[in-house]
């Protein structure tokens, strides 16, 4: 075994990049690698989320736990998360989670004095750290919404005389512990399909049959070339591995009209972020976390005590 290297050099090609959306190709690697990335993005890239809520006054309709749960789920901008400490590993505050290295404090004090219903939203949360604030869902590119109405995430609605006063502490955490720390809204990948049309057999079809065959796919994968009247692949990735076209070809008596394989070594990733960190950063952080985990594996071969060195990563390796 010694000396044999299975090292591969995967390639990444970014297709589309927005703040909260990333689409890229990952080539020359296998499912284990792709899935590891996906899993890390979902569950192990750290973010900051409200973890402790101290209710000072609550005369709203929702009860304390209800509010705390809602507060926890508000995504906070977490660019600091990678350098922050987990509060349980924090030496500065003995893990009581109240120091600047491991926690961010929020205050919320809203009182309704008008006859109209007052929405308490994530914008009402006052952060002690300007870099950690609730994610602003209001964006320039959000079409179709009146931007003035878009006032953050609603926490609770208040009527006249109702008041909400609380202190919340946000901490670093990972999605494995609670979904509120997951930076990813959606991470998914698909195998890139490889479509081979048997041109000769296709030519035996009439134009009507071709159309019918193309229509049989629920997604727009194939099309007719307007000039040559030939069937062409418009969008291979729209193919959902539903086999409908193959079944159709079989029922037309043209088995083997088209052959579709999944390319085992190339993946198309779609990453959507909650806004806590940018989608691109999410991907980079994921690689970072994955690397740390692999480092831990490598080191643990040499030294037993290396386990402790990696803090919580060590715990993962021990099956935590």
């Amino acid at each position: 075994m010694e000396g044999v290297s299975y090292q591969r050099f995967p390639k990444v090609k970014i297709r589309e990049l927005k703040d909260d959306y990333l689409k890229f190709e990952l080539r020359e690697t296998d499912a284990s690698m792709a899935n590891a990335l996906r899993r890390v993005m979902l569950a192990e890239v750290p973010t900051i989320a409200i973890d402790l809520v101290e209710i000072e006054g609550n005369s709203s309709v929702l009860n304390d736990e209800f509010l705390a749960h809602r507060l926890g789920l508000i995504p906070l901008t977490s660019d600091r998360a990678m350098v922050m400490r987990f509060s349980r590993d924090c030496d500065a505050c003995d893990g009581d989670g109240q120091c600047e290295f491991c926690s961010v404090e929020f205050h919320l004090h809203v009182r309704c004095d008008s006859d109209q219903t007052l929405d308490v939203t994530s914008h009402d949360l006052v952060s002690s750290d300007p870099s950690v604030v609730p994610v602003d869902v209001q964006r320039a590119d959000s079409v179709g919404y009146d931007t003035s109405e878009q006032r953050g995430i609603i926490i609770v609605k208040l009527r006249r005389g109702q008041e909400l006063r609380l202190r919340a502490i946000a901490r670093k955490g990972i999605g494995k512990d609670h979904a509120k720390w997951s930076p990813a809204a959606t991470v998914t990948f698909m195998y890139e399909p490889e479509i081979h049309i048997n041109e000769d057999m296709m030519e035996t079809l009439s134009l009507e049959e071709k159309r019918e065959w193309i229509e049989s796919s629920p997604t727009k994968v194939f099309g007719l070339d307007p000039n040559t009247q030939q069937v062409i692949v418009i969008d291979a990735e729209a193919y959902t591995y539903d086999d409908e076209v193959i079944k159709k070809a079989d029922s037309m008596g043209k088995s083997g009209l088209v052959e579709i394989y999944a390319k085992e070594d190339s993946f198309i990733f779609t990453v959507e972020s909650t806004g806590a960190i940018k989608a691109s950063q999410l991907f980079i952080n994921a690689i970072e976390v994955l690397k740390q985990k692999l480092d831990a594996v490598r080191l643990s071969e040499d030294t037993e005590e290396a386990d402790d060195q990696f803090g919580e990563l060590g715990a993962h390796m021990r099956g935590g």
Partner: peptide
């Protein structure tokens, strides 16, 4: 309606395993 929205007519989806990443 399902087909119009890119789903299979029979409500079945192509699914990947979350553990291995294989279909």
């Amino acid at each position: 309606t399902l087909v119009n929205h890119g789903f299979s007519y029979n409500g079945k989806d192509f699914i990947y395993s979350g553990i291995t990443g294989c279909p």
